[in-house]
Design a protein around this nucleic acid. Structure first.
Length: 325
DNA sequence: CGAGTTCGAAGAGACACCGT
DNA sequence: ACGGTGTCTCTTCGAACTCG
């Protein structure tokens, strides 16, 4: 005969594994009488599990979807994976989710054996990333947008652009992209009849229009991440530049963030980068940090800007050298 | 076709037994 | 003594079946 608590967990497991169970079958599997099964079902109901019982020839017990999850048993690697996922979520920049993830993490780590706990901490410490610097995103907004993507539901919202100008949008949401501490929505803008990228933190609570739409094949052959990358690195800015870099693309792919510039190969020794910014100064400063040689293709003003910058640096260095002698 | 009957299953009370 | 369990018995409920 199984111990009481073990039997309750087994009973729960059985109820979850099949839509309906006869009391007699449960009793046989658990090695107890039907009366004891009824008492156990009562215990589970007392703990808050919604177990429905249907009388009659086709009757039986079934576990309904409830408001709380039944107890879960994790293997060591599963617990480690959940712990790591919660740590990542706790720093995801999504409001409410961060708090919930942290709360769940505290509960999980309290229950994990000390050895597993140390392993999880060590693992996460080795992949520690930079502190979250992006804007906070409302979980409800994110959930509504994700729901619209999944259910092909047209959404309406007010969008505040980079110049704080608010416009009303009706969109057919295609997908969400998380990049560099920010969330982006890729959607077909109905009134503009074109694809658009929206910063989720600038979306004022969206509502469903109730209308469904036929799914479209997304921009960039459905590669939303590439589309967002291109949109936010160049298209969104008033100043755009095209620069040839004297290094193979593979050598630079790791060091140049996709949100800063779009790389494309030219030949085995060179590649070209398309980038954008609010002003020439930002692009020039970025170019100065590159440890490769480059040729400015566009715009000619960038070359002038770099020339002036170079002259200033020359004069500064000249004075410094003179003072040292 | 509707009312009554039958059957099978859950629900529950009372009591006894057993192990801790 | 107490909690858990088994046995017996009765009630309730819903579906299937029967009959006028």
């Amino acid at each position: 005969m199984l111990q009481n608590s073990t039997r309750l967990l087994r009973l729960l497991g059985m109820l979850r594994s099949s839509p309906s169970w006869h009391g007699a079958v449960l009793a046989e599997r658990l090695g107890v009488t039907e009366r004891t099964v009824r008492r156990d079902v009562d215990h589970l109901r007392g703990l808050g599990y919604r177990i429905s019982a249907t009388p009659g020839p086709d009757g039986g017990y079934s576990l309904e979807a409830g408001t709380t999850l039944p107890p879960l048993l994790f293997e060591e690697d599963e617990a480690l994976a959940v712990s790591l996922a919660l740590r990542t979520l706790a720093a995801s920049g999504v409001e409410d989710v961060e708090e919930s993830a942290l709360s769940a993490l505290v509960k999980l780590e309290h229950l994990m054996p000390p050895g597993h706990n140390r392993k999880a901490r060590a693992f996460f410490a080795s992949i520690q990333k930079l502190a979250q610097t992006g804007p906070k995103v409302d979980q409800a907004v994110l959930a509504t947008l994700a729901g619209g993507c999944a259910d092909h539901e047209q959404l309406q919202f007010n969008y505040r652009d980079g110049k704080a100008q608010v416009s009303q949008r009706t969109v057919e949401p295609q997908g969400l992209v998380n990049a560099e501490s920010r969330w982006y929505l890729v959607a077909w803008d109905v009134s503009r009849a074109d694809w658009r990228t929206f910063r989720v933190d600038r979306v004022v609570p969206p509502i469903s229009s109730g209308a469904r739409f036929e799914p479209r094949s997304g921009p960039d052959k459905g590669d939303l991440a590439a589309y967002v990358s291109r949109s936010v690195s160049t298209a969104a800015y008033p100043v755009r530049a095209k620069v040839i870099l004297h290094a193979p693309m593979q050598a630079l792919a790791q060091s140049i963030c996709p949100l800063v510039g779009q790389l494309a190969p030219l030949d085995s020794q060179r590649c070209i980068v398309h980038t954008g910014a609010h002003d020439l100064h930002t692009i020039a400063s970025w170019l100065c940090t590159l440890e490769v040689e480059y040729d400015i293709q566009e715009p000619p003003e960038l070359l002038e800007f770099l020339r002036a910058m170079n002259a200033r640096i020359d004069r500064t260095l000249g004075r410094a050298i003179k003072a040292a002698h």
